[in-house]
Each structure stands twice: as structure tokens, then as C-alpha cells.
Amino acid sequence: MSGVGPISQDWEPVVIRKKAPNAAAKKDEKAVNAARRSGAEIETLKKATAGTNKAASSSTTLNTRKLDEETENLAHERVPTELKKAIMQARMDKKLTQAQLAQMINEKPQIIQEYESGKAIPNQQIITKLERALGAKLRGKK
């Protein structure tokens, strides 16, 4: 290593410290108790909705009030009586159970039960499947 000046090392101490506690750590019960023991001042604030199990946005707004005051009765359309009787009659003529008919159209037996009891919301695809499986026209008999 000739021709290179004197070798010197510059060693400076490096100090590694923990991060300052964040806001959540400052609110920790242990931290608060330690601050009390050391005599530090502790500020306590009560939140507006603390302990009430209510979200800040759960208050009644203008739109909610309008919806509550709405008097129009909205309900889904149900299977008409003529359709449910036609399905039952066609199924009985073919001597099929609800479960067998449901299997023929690849639907759950509950679907057939709902259609025959009038609780189902009419679905044109299912009605078409029923017409094909039963070989009967179920719609348009008005």
C-alpha cells in the first residue's frame, strides 16, 4: 500500500434508540399508571358516544326520516293463483312429486314448493323450465 496516505479510521459511536411511543401506546393502561406514579399530569376526555354502543352515523338523517314517513307499501310480486294452480294440476297429471319435478328441471324441491304455495317471486326462466318439463302452457291463460 505504498503511495497511499496514512490510514485512519473515523469511529463515531452510533446510538440506537427505541421509537417514541405512539398515541395508542400512550393511552395504554400501563403507561397511564406509570405516568400517575411519576406525578405527571394526565388529561382524561370522555368521547361523545363512549359506552353507548352507537355509531356516530347512526343518528336519524333526513333521508332516513323520509323513508320512515313513506306510506307506500312496497312488496315483491308473488306467483299468481292461476299459475300455482296450473303448476300443481300439470304435475299431478304427470303423476310427479315436487322432488321429481325439481330434479327434472335441475332446481331444488323448495323452489317447486314455493311456486305451488304462491310464496315465490316469479322467475321467467324457471317458469319456462316448468312448461317444458310438464308439457303444458302455464303462462298467458288470462
Score class of each variant (00 low, 15 high):
L83H: 03
Q103Y: 00
E82L: 08
N53H: 09
A56Q: 07
G5W: 03
K85N: 15
N22W: 02
L83F: 03
I105G: 00
V4A: 10
A102S: 04
A23D: 15
A90E: 06
Q125S: 14
A133H: 03
K137I: 11
K108W: 00
K108F: 00
K137M: 08
I127Y: 01
P21A: 13
A90W: 04
I105A: 00
T44H: 06
K85W: 07
A24R: 06
A35N: 10
S57T: 04
G39A: 14
K27F: 01
A24P: 01
Q113L: 04
M88S: 11
A48P: 04
L62D: 12
E131I: 13
E77T: 15
T81R: 12
K142N: 11
S8H: 05
A50P: 01
T97A: 06
E107S: 08
K27D: 02
A35K: 10
I121E: 10
A102D: 05
E29C: 04
P13N: 04
M1Q: 11
L83Q: 06
I111A: 11
G51Q: 11
G135D: 12
N33H: 10
E41T: 15
N123Y: 02
K85E: 15
V14H: 05
A99I: 13
K30E: 15
R37P: 00
Q100K: 10
A56E: 11
A50G: 06
A40G: 02
M104W: 00
S117A: 12
S38R: 15
A55C: 02
N33C: 05
R78Q: 14
A24Q: 07
A86K: 13
D10G: 01
K119W: 03
P122C: 14
K47I: 09
T97P: 01
N33Q: 15
Q9H: 03
R36D: 11
V32I: 15
K94Q: 02
D68A: 10
S2K: 12
T44Y: 05
L67Q: 15
M1E: 12
G39Y: 12
T64N: 05
I16Y: 08
I121L: 05
T97Y: 06
T61M: 03
D10Y: 10
L67S: 14
A50C: 02
K137G: 08
K27A: 04
L130P: 05
K142C: 02
K129I: 07
Q9D: 09
G39W: 13
K30G: 10
L83R: 06
I121Y: 01
I126N: 11
N22C: 10
I105S: 00
L45A: 07
G3A: 05
A120C: 03
P6F: 09
K142Q: 12
A86N: 14
R139D: 07
A34T: 12
G51D: 13
I127M: 09
Q103H: 02
S8E: 10
R65P: 00
A99Y: 00
A48R: 07
